[in-house]
Amino acid sequence: MSDLHTELKKSIIEQLNLEDMEVSEIENDEHLFGDGLGLDSIDALELIVLLEKDYGIKLTDPNQGKEIFNSINTMADFIEKNRVR
């Protein structure tokens, strides 16, 4: 697991108040929404803010969200390719 994967998991736990969850409990390919982690639309807003705040990535096309926020792996890939900090 890369540092970015771990960093992302830590940020998600903190930002989304997943109080009882450990980094090790989130699988890299686990769905973040729906059946997986069970995140909802308010969490999606938090993730958009997280991308911009921590990595300087501004999502211009809301339709991209579904693909990017599919799992930790897809988020990490997108960040690697687009990060400005």
Binding site: Q15, I42, L45, E46, V49, E52, K53
Partner: peptide, 9 residues
């Protein structure tokens, strides 16, 4: 955040 990005929740 100096009136920058805010957590929506």
């Amino acid at each position: 955040s100096k009136e920058g990005l805010l957590s929506p929740t």
